[in-house]
């Protein structure tokens, strides 16, 4: 029965893809919903080899995640994530602490290993499309006492373009300075980064992502611990990016501002609870499902897998 539902959903997805490409996201999310209960998670992926080939994913999607499971020490922290990002949208990733939001981004970027699954960027594996993806890590992930200036940090966004063993030339420093001005930080270019406030540091990170000139941006809590002015500046830049056809996935914590900031939302708690246009998906019911405690069975299964205990019954 699950299998037929699943097939129905993916048939549906393909037909929509032809008729109305922009709505394929919503349908894709309903496919996720179908499998969102823990009983179907493994059943669905095991049941249909055709789906395992991933052919239902549109090749033009900026980011397609196909049946990705991420585990630390064999203990799954993210289960069977299946997701297609619609192009040119701001997508909020929302969920409680420990839901696997950062892990999702890091697994896409191959910073943590995937237990299974596949990620494509515009139809090709991430490794071949690195240049198209920009990453804004959590602000706390780096040492802000490091002896570099704000401009130095932003210029790091150009290193992939510069290539190995070549110095950062004037051209790239100018690009970095332009990105700093875009976030309103041109006056702070020569400051040592420890002398910047939290909001200013976050803007430097954002400028570094801008200078990468990527098509897909993955941002880990860009709004965490920033002042009101910075929050506004970031929102403005996100809107600019969207208007330029860029796709942004951002981990977000403040539920109140989700409908205001994001067109689409992915509700995450060890699995995708729901995803789609904010107005459809960001409902009280879905939020309750996301935040109302973890799925006990999922946790038990994860623990059993971590310990390597098979259930013989």
């Amino acid at each position: 029965m699950h299998r037929s539902l699943k097939e129905e959903a993916s048939r549906d997805a393909r037909s929509h893809e032809r008729a109305e490409p922009s709505s394929e996201f919503g349908v894709a999310s309903s496919r996720v919903d179908v499998r969102g209960t823990q009983t179907t998670v493994t059943a669905a992926s095991a049941a249909s080899p055709r789906i395992a080939s991933g052919e239902e994913h549109p090749s033009n999607s900026p980011l397609s995640i196909h049946d990705m499971t991420v585990a630390y020490h064999r203990k799954p922290v993210l289960w069977d994530v299946d997701f297609d990002a619609p192009e040119g949208r701001l997508i909020g990733i929302v969920g409680p602490n420990g839901a696997g939001k950062s892990t999702l981004l890091k697994a896409v970027l191959e910073l943590v290993p995937k237990a299974s699954g596949r990620v494509t960027i515009y139809g090709a594996p991430y490794r071949r499309q690195r240049r198209l993806v920009g990453y804004v890590p959590q602000r706390e992930s780096v040492d802000w006492d490091f002896p570099v200036s704000a401009l130095d940090v932003v210029a790091m966004g150009t290193y992939a373009r510069i290539g190995w063993l070549r110095p950062v030339t004037r051209k790239y420093r100018d690009a970095a300075l332009a990105a700093l001005s875009r976030v309103g930080m041109a006056d702070y270019a020569d400051r040592q980064i420890s002398q910047l406030s939290g909001g200013q540091q976050q803007r430097v990170f954002l400028a570094r992502a801008l200078v990468q000139d990527a098509k897909v941006y993955l941002m880990d809590e860009p709004f965490a611990g920033v002042d009101a002015a910075t929050e506004k500046a970031i929102v403005r830049i996100l809107h600019d990016l969207r208007d330029a056809g860029r796709t942004v996935l951002a981990v977000h914590h403040d539920l109140q501002t989700v409908p205001e900031y994001f067109d689409h939302v992915m509700l995450l708690n060890m699995r995708i609870v729901a995803s789609g246009p904010t107005r459809d998906v960001f409902t009280r019911e879905n939020l309750q499902k996301t935040y109302g405690g973890r799925l006990t069975l999922l946790e038990q299964a994860a623990h059993a897998m971590a310990r390597g205990i098979a259930n013989s019954e």
Binding site: R130, V142, F146, V148, M156, A160
Partner: peptide, 22 residues
């Protein structure tokens, strides 16, 4: 001197460094 840029980014922000292909 040769790997100045690479050493700097991988020391400051190893994750970003890796995503940039360094």
């Amino acid at each position: 001197i040769a790997f100045y840029k690479e050493l700097r980014i991988s020391s400051f922000d190893p994750e970003l460094s890796t995503t940039l292909g360094i």
